[in-house]
């Protein structure tokens, strides 16, 4: 087989994988809409997913958000003060943290914690025939396992992103007050002056798309495990890599559309 053949073969496999994922996504969306209208979403799995993805990541998100807010102010203050433009720190906080970093960093935390755990759990369930067991009861694994997880991750990521924004602003204020003692109220007034509804909206819209694709990719890769336990870590690595790529591509697309519209 020559080099061109190998490229062609890989391209075919790539297109087949995209098609297979597209079919999976269409099935999940279709089933979600029908289950949502019938109020039949698995509440136990949904609550457990929101608890694990959202609540248990609370401290980790707090530390990172606080640190990021502080670092932006620290770096910004050093650079901007040389131009006498320290007021631009608020613009920096809005542009860098609220528009970009809050959703993307929260997404990375969720990929590392929940994406890997979803993929591993479903992969192991596949190997130990638990998916077959559900099918033997006539229960669709997509309805029972996937939809609640996707919905749970979307809700958790959405909430965590808002929370990240709040904590990073507090971190920013905390470090600003080292350089220029400023009451929180004044700091917030300056920040709100630079903040538009669009800034907040873009942050939460991104979080919804990120959550949807992270959970979907993780579930898809988990369910692709066939027979061997050794496939589980391989699929988990793929889930992480593909989720990160998806987050970056979606981020670029949404940001581009945002600037196009405004």
């Amino acid at each position: 087989m020559n080099y061109i053949d190998r490229i062609g073969e890989r391209l075919i496999v790539f297109i087949e994988n995209i098609k297979s994922f597209g079919r999976f996504m269409a099935t999940v969306v279709r089933r979600f809409l029908s289950l949502y209208s019938e109020k039949k979403i698995n509440a136990d799995v949904l609550v457990r997913q929101v608890y694990f993805t959202g609540f248990e990541a609370f401290w980790l998100v707090s530390i990172i958000a606080f640190g990021i807010g502080a670092l932006i102010i620290l770096q910004g203050n050093i650079i901007l003060s040389t131009f006498g433009q320290t007021k631009l720190m608020y613009v920096l906080l809005v542009t860098v943290v609220i528009r970009e970093l809050s959703s993307i960093l929260t997404a990375l935390i969720v990929i590392a914690r929940s994406g890997t755990s979803i993929c591993t759990e479903l992969g192991n369930m596949k190997v130990s025939h638990e998916i077959d067991l559900l099918q033997s009861y006539g229960i669709s694994p997509i309805n029972y396992l996937v939809i609640s997880r996707v919905f749970g991750v979307v809700v958790a990521l959405f909430t965590l992103t808002i929370y990240f924004n709040i904590i990073s602003i507090l971190g920013g204020w905390f470090f600003t007050s080292f350089f220029y003692p400023i009451p929180l109220k004044d700091f917030m007034m300056h920040l709100i002056g630079e903040l538009s509804v669009g800034d907040l909206l873009i942050s939460v819209i991104k979080s919804v798309f990120f959550g949807f694709f992270i959970a979907l990719i993780s579930c898809y890769q988990g369910l692709q495990v066939v027979v061997a336990r050794t496939e589980v870590p391989q699929r988990t690595i793929r889930a992480v890599v593909q989720s990160i790529l998806a987050v970056i591509v979606i981020d670029i697309l949404i940001t581009y559309i945002y600037y196009l519209v405004l």
Binding site: M125, S128, D132, L133, L134, S136, G138
Partner: peptide, 18 residues
């Protein structure tokens, strides 16, 4: 659901949701 209500299935190893 209709079909699996009528067919009971027992796995070789004894499978339960973990």
């Amino acid at each position: 659901r209709e079909i699996h209500r009528k067919i009971g299935y027992v796995f070789q190893e004894g499978v339960l949701i973990s």
